[in-house]
Design a protein around this nucleic acid. Structure first.
Lengths: 234, 234
DNA sequence: ACCTGAACACCGTTCAAGT
DNA sequence: ACCTGAACACCGTTCAAGT
């Protein structure tokens, strides 16, 4: 650190597609997905913007590649926490898989939107869903029911749900909030009623919903249990 | 038509926010959401780009407004097809509401992404979800269970699910497809197995999934039935 | 083989100015 | 009150050119 001059020997290793993609992920992690521009990304790897095009076709390719990096991370986590075999407990196996994937996606909050913005099926995504399907098959699902199951799970199979109401980061003081609630009470009676009760039980969730772990698991279990019932009666 | 000169008396009515927003919707309908730029939108209403800023604060405000226009359309449809009252059949009432909303969103395929990109709760969205909550309450749900139910439904309550695998518009010939399937068979055995069976049953769905009406209703009913069970045992 | 500079056709937005 | 022109700070991307 102390003896090395700043601009001399650092960029010896030439750029590579992998390095570009990993830099893209950490740039998005640090500054948000809107900061992931070709120019910023170039700066992140110490190069001019146009040099990136030597390693990736265009920005779409960067986003495709970023999704693959994320899914590699998911697969790495999955390698460490293998749950029960699907033959004995398909629901448990699915649950641990999905919650492990969720763990990774929570570390990259911008990733769900990027994943959903891709239209082509990347190999990494295909691999993931192939494994999901494998769990269902192992649990005795017909291909037909498994197909419906994949649709029913949707992005939940990857560990996320797009929340319609993102909670505000800046919760505007409890007084303002309760004043606002009173003003909205006639327009949105049920919403206000619910918020008052939920806020009473859990003062942390004042306004907006809360995509916490509990809500995710609630919805997930609802679907998994429903699917299990269909599997048995099919 | 024949007697009127082209550039004279057309833009008599001055622009209004409403006209801008409606133009934004029809522009997105016609040319896709990527074509909805301030410059294109200005041209659509026969004005220079900078004039828009007299009527809307910025592009975010346009997108907010566009969502409200869509939800007005939803409410209009809902006004015409009132289902059963929630007190007698909450599930049926919810089902007709959600499938009616879906009908509108299918006419504006870009709308789901825009809706999910909004972070603030617009009044129109709040009104919609207040009504959804009202149906649940009418069906005897506690606020607590209703809260979980809203999370479980997520965007499905508005009639859409974001599909992970958008079907390709250009299906690349049946021969190519089956060749590709063979090549992928060892990498993605379950996916290929499922596709072969599904394709066999329904030649229309060759590759990729199919977010058709059936799959949506399958997932929706799975959740609604699950919620109904919880409601009765709670 | 790998990187760059200059340039192009776009964005959203501000600001002073027109009628 | 309503609209405009010129300008700014950005985008992604191409292309000919450097080492």
């Amino acid at each position: 650190m102390a003896t090395r001059t700043e601009s001399s020997a650092e960029p010896r290793i030439p750029l590579s597609k992998e390095r570009v993609l990993r830099a893209a992920v950490s740039l998005a992690d640090r500054d948000g997905i809107d900061s992931l521009t070709m120019r910023n990304l170039a700066q992140e790897v110490g190069v001019e913007a146009m040099s990136l095009y030597y390693h990736v076709a265009n920005k779409e390719a960067v986003l495709d590649g970023v999704v693959d990096v994320i899914l590699d991370e998911v697969e790495e986590v999955l390698g460490n926490v293998d749950g029960p075999p699907a033959e004995e407990d398909w629901k448990g196996a699915m649950r641990t898989r999905i919650l492990s994937a969720r763990e990774v996606l929570l570390r990259h909050p911008w990733a769900p939107a990027v994943i959903e913005s891709r239209s082509a099926i990347s190999p990494a995504i295909a691999r993931y869903f192939d494994a999901v399907l494998g769990l269902l098959r192992g649990g005795g699902f017909s291909y037909d029911l498994a197909h419906h199951a994949m649709h029913a799970l949707g992005s939940r199979a990857l560990g996320f749900t797009q929340e319609l109401f993102e909670p505000d980061d800046h919760d505007a003081g409890a007084d303002d909030a309760s004043n606002m609630l009173e003003q909205m009470a006639d327009q949105f009676p049920y919403l206000v009623g619910m918020m008052m009760e939920v806020a009473h039980d859990d003062p942390n969730s004042t306004l907006g919903w809360c995509d916490d772990q509990f809500e995710f698991e609630f919805g997930l279990d609802l679907i998994l249990n429903g699917l299990d019932g269909l599997r048995q009666t099919a």
